[in-house]
Simulated assay, not measured.
Amino acid sequence: MRAAGLLVFPPGTAAEPYRSFYSADRWESLASLFLETHHSLLSIPSTPLLHIALSAGLSALKTPSCHSAFASSSSNASSSVTSVCPICSTELNELARNVPYVHHTKSHVENDPVVLPNGRIYGREKLMAINVKLGTPEGKVRDPTDMSQLYDLTQVKKVFIS
């Protein structure tokens, strides 16, 4: 009977419940209800499958160094090393900012790992080679992902994996 009443009352009516039936909020709720019903009938997720797949792929590649201010990438002109990391590229960097970091169940540790005072771990040989390229003073070491910090070589500790 209320649906038939809509034929009698015009859209600008003050009579309830017909005034609320014609309100803009009602049309928005009907549109969202239609989409929910359509998606549930066809078993379509509310988030597009492309977004889900892209998020999973970006999360599988994202590491803490991807959003470092000093991360080496093809888009960083001051970088001495070129990276092929897709997360570091200008196209995907903003898209990947809110996805979680990758969680590897198998560890890939370099030979002779050392830890810097900021908690980052590197292979001693590679860390020293990078510091030679950066021109770090003798007896000092610089973190490649945070170049603002200069540490004394005595602060670098050997890591024993257990």
Rank of each mutant, 00 (worst) to 15 (best):
S55V: 09
I87C: 12
C88N: 04
I130S: 05
Y22T: 10
Y22V: 11
R124G: 01
K158M: 03
N93S: 12
V99L: 08
S83F: 04
P86Y: 13
A24T: 13
Q155A: 15
V159K: 11
E91V: 12
P117G: 12
P137D: 01
L50K: 13
R124A: 14
R2H: 11
S68I: 01
E91D: 08
L92R: 04
L30A: 15
S23L: 10
T145S: 08
S59E: 15
E94G: 02
K62T: 03
S43F: 03
K126W: 06
D152F: 07
S107D: 02
N131S: 08
N118A: 10
A129W: 11
V102S: 10
E36H: 11
P86V: 13
S68R: 06
P117N: 08
I121A: 02
V115A: 00
A71E: 05
R142Y: 02
N98A: 13
Y22K: 07
M128S: 12
E125G: 08
Y22H: 12
A77K: 07
E94P: 00
H39G: 00
E36N: 09
S80A: 04
S74I: 09
K126Q: 01
L35D: 15
F160W: 04
L134H: 10
S59N: 02
D152S: 11
P45F: 03
L92K: 04
N93L: 08
D146Y: 01
A77N: 13
S107N: 09
S43D: 12
Y22L: 05
F160P: 00
N118R: 05
H103S: 04
L116A: 01
N131C: 14
A53F: 08
F34P: 01
L92E: 00
H104A: 13
V159Q: 09
L127E: 02
T145C: 04
L61W: 07
P10W: 12
T145K: 09
D25L: 03
S68N: 02
D143A: 01
V81N: 01
P113G: 07
A3E: 13
L33Q: 06
H38Q: 13
S89C: 10
Q155D: 10
A60E: 09
F21A: 15
A3R: 05
P48W: 01
L150F: 06
H39W: 04
L41E: 04
A24E: 15
T136P: 13
V115T: 04
L127Y: 00
T82G: 06
V159L: 15
E110V: 03
S55P: 07
V114M: 12
A14M: 08
F70E: 05
L54P: 06
S65T: 14
H38V: 09
G12D: 12
R26N: 14
D146S: 01
H103Y: 10
A77C: 05
L150P: 10
S89F: 05
I130V: 12
T90V: 01
V159A: 05
L7V: 03
G12H: 09
N111W: 00
L49T: 14
